[in-house]
Nucleic acid binder design. Structure first.
Lengths: 137, 137
DNA sequence: CTCTAAGTGTTATATTATTACGTACGTAAT
DNA sequence: ATTACGTACGTAATAATATAACACTTAGAG
């Protein structure tokens, strides 16, 4: 028999602010900066940096987005279940960022580090590259 | 034939500001923040953030120090020849940072990434860990 | 000596992020 | 139904991090 409740738990769903920030990042697909997000969502009712940062913090915690530390930007997560371990390439010339999905890579890194007798709780890998189109032109 | 010039390049020696910033990081061994460095070196004649950032930028470029992006801090380089590729562990509990020197790790990462058909120009890896003493206590 | 690249010193300002405080609201225990 | 609690919200103020612009100086190559 199913629950008599017809509504889902609050903890399963995002709040309005979290939702609109996530949607923006989702639609963009690119890394966005906090204050850009703020400007973009002024019309949705976001008025202060803190509202943005709180939403971003929560979304990072949930693994729905990632922070790219070296450019102070946030990007939608392309994978599933990578709340703690992330890897990106960033083109040095055009700035394009991609999340590295290759399981071989991330597993391999984990193994290498484990061999080094470290207890890893999470990691963030940022590879600066020359992307294909920038390599050509 | 080789050049007839006997270079004693300027690039071999650091300027005063670069020197005192490097010395501070060397003596500290810990990651330091730019404004902490500024405060610490007021007595040596550093008066503005820009003086610190310029010295830091140059030292990073020379590979003598590294920036740890996720904590906006700078640390003396423990290796040699790692201007472009760096890897750190950061303890989640006590904040202690160590540069990973294990050649096996960095070579391994390079290989993994090459297999992934990326042309890497440099990378920065930040592993959050529980360090030995924090694991015990 | 002269030219040039790199560095300096200073002021002002831009960018990124957090503290502090009070309010609102959903959930679970009483 | 009332209370207590945890989480999120809104707002103002401010802290922390980093760069722009400008004029001047210095070191080294030629």
């Amino acid at each position: 028999m199913s629950s008599t409740h017809t509504y889902s738990k609050k903890s399963q769903s995002l709040t309005k602010n979290q939702r609109i920030v996530l949607d923006l990042l989702q639609n963009s697909g690119e890394p966005l900066k906090a204050y850009f997000i703020l400007d973009s969502l002024k019309k949705e009712g976001l008025n202060s940096p803190l509202q943005v940062y709180r939403a971003l913090d929560k979304l990072v915690e949930l693994g729905k987005i990632h922070k790219i530390e070296s450019i102070n930007s946030f990007i939608i997560c392309n994978n599933s279940n990578c709340a703690s371990n992330t890897a990106f390439t960033i083109c040095e010339r055009c700035g394009k960022v991609k999340e590295i999905k290759n399981k071989y890579l991330t597993d391999g890194v984990s193994d290498l580090v484990k061999d080094n007798q470290l207890e890893i709780t999470r990691y963030n890998l940022e590879f600066y590259v020359l992307c294909k189109s920038c390599k050509i032109n």
